[in-house]
Write a protein that binds this DNA or RNA. Structure first.
Lengths: 330, 330
DNA sequence: TACTTAATTGAAATCGATTTCAGTTTTATT
DNA sequence: AATAAAACTGAAATCGATTTCAATTAAGTA
C-alpha cells in the first residue's frame, strides 16, 4: 500500500493524502474524512524511507558505543532514548566492540544522511577520529572523552578521584594501591591516574610503582592486577579505577587469605547497580550515566535545531562519593 | 556530494558511477579508474536512504527490547550485532520500557519498510501483539516467549527450574519458598512457577501459599517478596525466579538476622555476570543470552533470504545448572 | 570479410513520499 | 455586484540512488 493507492481509493490525489497525513496545507473537511477513512481501513503506514529521502531527514539518531552489553553503555542508551522518544526519533546503535577501526567506520557510515545526528561514547580519541568527525555533515556529541571542537559530556574524573583519594587518606590509609587502565583512554586511563599521583604528592606520600598496576577493563583484569601487586606488597587500601576492577581485586585479595575491609580496603568508581549488594558493599563514586545520555541527546537536538554553526561546549556531569563498607577507617 | 557530481567530475554518467560503486555491470578499466579516483579524492559516500528506497531494503534490523539497560537485553543485542555485522546490517533499537503500548507501536512503525526484519525480546504476548505481528510485511523472530506462527528462540524454563528444584530437594531441603513474577509473562511468570508446583508434587511436598510471593523484576521486589515470606515462615531454601530477585531476597534475609547459606539457602535464575562474585556466590541457572541473540539473528536472516513463506519453528537454548555456595546441603 | 556475440555506455524510468506552482472554487469585503 | 483574499486541489518536479533499455563499439568466429 502506497500513497497512490490510498489516493485512488479515496478519490483524491497523492498530494491531498500527504496533506492529510501530515496535517499541513488546505484540505476540505469531506475529503479529509474520506482519506482518513481509507487510511484507517487499510491500516496504511507511509514508507519511512521515502519520507526520509524527500524530507532530507531520517528521524534517526546514530549511537556509537564501545560495547552495549556493559552497564555504562546501556544506561547511556537508556538516557538517550528517554529524550529521543519525546521527539519521535529512533536509535541506530553501532556496537564497536572497542575497536577503533569499527568506531571510525561507524562514524563514516552513519554520516551519509542515514542519521540526523550522532552520539558517540568513546573510550579513545585518535587523530583519525577527529579527522573523520570534522568531515561529518551531521552534528556529533561525544560522551566520556574530550574532543576539541565538539560538544562533550564529561565526567569530572579528576575531582572525583581527588575527593575519593582524600577520603581514603582521611580514613587513615597511607599505603594506597592503584589499579588503572591504558593511558590511551585519556579520561579513565590518564586523568584518573594523574589525580591519584597528585593525591600522593599533596599528602606527601611516596610514589611506589609496586603499588600501581595497569590492566584492561574486565573483572579478570582486576584480579590479575591485584595479584601482581600482592606479590610485591600488601597495601592497606586499593583504589581501582572501575567497579569491575575493584570486584576482581576483592576476589584476588580474598584468594590470598586477607579479609576486606579488615585487612585491605577497596574502592571502585562508577557505582554499578550491584555495588551496594556486594559484601562488603563497595565504596565508590556514583556517576549518573543515564543523565549523561539524556544531556547528550538534548545537546544534540539543540545543534540539530540550530541553523548556524553551534558553539561546542564541555558539560560536566555531577558525581557523588558513595561511602560503603569496603573501606575501613584505621 | 551526490552521484551526479561524481559522474560529472569523472566525465561519465551516474549509471557508470553506480556500476563502479556496486561492482556490477560492465565498466571499462580506464573509466573505472577515473571514477574510483574521484570517489577517493572527494571521499564520496552514497546516500544510504536513497539506496534503501531504490533497493527496497534498508540493511537495518529492528530490535525491540523491554529495557536495554538490563543485562539480559544488552547481551541479546550483543549477540545480534555479532551476526548482523557479518552481513553489514545495522541495528535500530526500540526501547519499550516494558510498556505493551510501546511494543505494539514499535512493531507497527518498524514494519514500514524502515527495517528488513525484526527481532523482539518480549515479556508478554497479547492478542494485540499477535494481530500486529501477522500484518507485518517483514520477518519477525521472537526471543523469550512463545508466539504461534513465528520463529521463537526460547529458554527451556520448565526443565531448568525442574532440574534446579530437584537439586534443591536432593540437597535436603523440604521448605522451599518461591519468589516469582506476574503470570502474564508466560515463560517466567507462568512456566517457572508451574515447574515449582510440579516439583513440590513430584516430591510429595505440601504446597504452602505462605512460601510463595509474586512481585516485579527488580532487586527491591525480591527484598519485598522475601520480607513478606519471612513474616509468615522461615524456609530452608528460597528459589527466586531471577538473579536480581535472589539478590533482593538475600538482602532481606540478612536484614532479619539470618545467615546465608547456613540458615537459608537461596538460588536465582539467569547467571548474571556478578552472580559468581556475590558472597556467597549464587547458585543459579546459566542462560547464554548472547547466543540466543545470535541464533535469533541467524534465523531472521534465513527468513529474509528465503523467497517463499518460512516455516516457523521453536528453538530452545541450552542451560546449565551452576552450583555455587548460596545453597547448602542439610 | 561478414556476421554474431560480448562489452560498454548513458538517457530515462523508478522507488514512494512531499511540495511547489498554477489553476479553480469559496468566502469576505466594500 | 465586483473584487480581493483565502481555501482548495492535483499535475509535475524532486529527493539520490539503481536499473532497464536501446544504442554503440569491440571482440570473436566461421
Amino acid at each position: 500500500m502506497k500513497i497512490k493507492d490510498i489516493a485512488k481509493l479515496a478519490g483524491v490525489s497523492p498530494a491531498t493524502v500527504s496533506r492529510v497525513m501530515n496535517n499541513n496545507g488546505y484540505v476540505k473537511a469531506d475529503k479529509r474524512k474520506a482519506v482518513e477513512a481509507v487510511i484507517k481501513e487499510v491500516g496504511y503506514q507511509p514508507n519511512e524511507i521515502a519520507k526520509s529521502l524527500k524530507n532530507q531527514k531520517s528521524k534517526i539518531i546514530g549511537v556509537i558505543v564501545p560495547k552495549i552489553s556493559t552497564e555504562t553503555a546501556s544506561r547511556i542508551v537508556d538516557g538517550i532514548t528517554q529524550v529521543t522518544k519525546t521527539r519521535n526519533y529512533q536509535l541506530l546503535i553501532a556496537n564497536t566492540n572497542q575497536q577503533i577501526e569499527e568506531e571510525i567506520n561507524s562514524l563514516k557510515f552513519l554520516s551519509n544522511k542515514l542519521v540526523d545526528g550522532i552520539i558517540m561514547s568513546a573510550t579513545e580519541v585518535t587523530d583519525q577520529h577527529i579527522e573523520v568527525a570534522r568531515r561529518l555533515t551531521v552534528p556529533l556529541v561525544i560522551i566520556g572523552q574530550k574532543m576539541e571542537g565538539f560538544t562533550c559530556v564529561l565526567y569530572n574524573n579528576y575531582n572525583a578521584v581527588t575527593d575519593l583519594f582524600n577520603y581514603i587518606v582521611d580514613s587513615g590509609h597511607q599505603e594506597i594501591a592503584f589499579i588503572g587502565v591504558d593511558q590511551r583512554d585519556i579520561e579513565v586511563g590518564q586523568i584518573r591516574k594523574q589525580a591519584y599521583l597528585d593525591g600522593l604528592e599533596r599528602h606527601q606520600l611516596p610514589y611506589n610503582p609496586d603499588l600501581v598496576a595497569i590492566e584492561d577493563f574486565s573483572i579478570e583484569s582486576g584480579y590479575k592486577a591485584m595479584t601482581r601487586i600482592l606479590e610485591k606488597r600488601l597495601p592497606t587500601a586499593v583504589m581501582a579505577v572501575t567497579d569491575h576492577l575493584a570486584i576482581g581485586a576483592i576476589q584476588a585479595i580474598r584468594d590470598c587469605g586477607y579479609r576486606i575491609p579488615e585487612d585491605v580496603s577497596v574502592t571502585g568508581i562508577g557505582d554499578i547497580k550491584l555495588a551496594q549488594y556486594l559484601s562488603p558493599p563497595l565504596t565508590t563514586v556514583h556517576y549518573n550515566f543515564k543523565t549523561s545520555g539524556q544531556i547528550a541527546a538534548e545537546q544534540l537536538f539543540n545543534q540539530m535545531d540550530q541553523e548556524e554553526k553551534y558553539v561546542a561546549e564541555d558539560i560536566y556531569i555531577d558525581y557523588d562519593l558513595v561511602i560503603r563498607n569496603s573501606l575501613k577507617k584505621r
